[in-house]
């Protein structure tokens, strides 16, 4: 799915967070959004997945303004893995994942055996086969994120948004989750804190600072020590491995 963001302004309360942002995302790309804390990464993503409403500006999915679509329609085009998944009631893994079928169901339509087959397949794809009956709240953080990824898979959308999905995960799970996402192969937009993870997996990097676009490009052409200094105010050196992969090393600042 192509996503086009046209002159977007978003406020949280009275505070402007996104200030006139334009961005195009092409079908099939894995796009990483980077930027310092409070730069508006999450706000941008939350506006794309419609939890927040833009002040002005328009977001288009395949050329159609999302405000003209129902939530159900956009939920069939776009799934979300975010960092907040604390439930005050305990669900089984199976019932968490099967909720991904909700946008494909009429209000009173019940889940059928096909839906449960999709749930089993999705859990297998994220490496959690046989987890249906486990209690979600008893899983580790990495497992919980993979359950939510499985829910996004059964939602069967062209586009996936990852809203800082690897926070709280240790390095193994971070790499595992990103590899899975890369393998799924749908258009993906991910807010990522760790620059090395971003350059390792993303086709395109979008840099945001203070609610405005600072740059768009492939990791190779975009990420430089100067840019890192500009957005984070830290010194960094960029190394290359034998396979010409980037590696960013930060220098102590204090």
């Amino acid at each position: 799915m192509n996503i086009k963001i046209d002159n977007l302004f978003v406020k949280l309360g009275n505070k402007p967070i996104i200030k006139g942002l334009n961005l195009s995302i092409n079908s099939g790309e894995l796009v990483g959004i980077i930027g310092p804390n409070g730069s508006g990464k999450s706000t941008l993503l939350r506006t794309i997945y419609r939890v927040l409403k833009p002040e002005t500006g328009v977001i288009y999915f395949d050329g159609i303004n999302i405000q003209d679509k129902s939530y159900k329609e956009t939920a069939r085009q776009l799934s979300v893995v975010s960092q907040h998944n604390n439930f005050s009631f305990d669900f089984s893994v199976g019932s968490v994942v099967v909720m991904g079928r909700a946008p494909h169901k009429r209000l009173m339509e019940q889940n059928n055996s096909d839906d449960y087959r999709l749930v089993r397949e999705a859990l297998t794809r994220v490496g959690l086969s046989g987890f249906e009956k486990r209690r979600f709240n008893t899983l580790s953080g990495g497992e919980q994120q993979r359950v939510i990824l499985a829910r996004a898979l059964v939602q069967n959308t062209e586009t996936l948004i990852l809203d800082e999905p690897t926070n709280h995960l240790d390095i193994k799970y971070q790499l595992q989750l990103m590899s899975m996402v890369k393998n799924i192969g749908c258009t993906t937009i991910a807010a990522i804190h760790d620059l090395n993870i971003a350059v390792m997996y993303c086709d395109k990097i979008v840099v945001i600072k203070a609610g405005q676009l600072m740059g768009v490009g492939t990791p190779d052409e975009l990420i430089t020590p100067e840019l890192i200094w500009d957005i984070y105010g830290v010194n960094a050196t960029i190394y290359r491995t034998k396979d010409n992969e980037m590696y960013i090393l930060f220098t102590k600042t204090i």
Partner: peptide
């Protein structure tokens, strides 16, 4: 299903079309 969804919270519900 709507009642299940309520326990997931408003944000998740919107991303699941409700």
């Amino acid at each position: 299903r709507v009642l299940d969804m309520m326990l997931f919270g408003d944000e998740t519900a919107v991303t699941l079309g409700m």
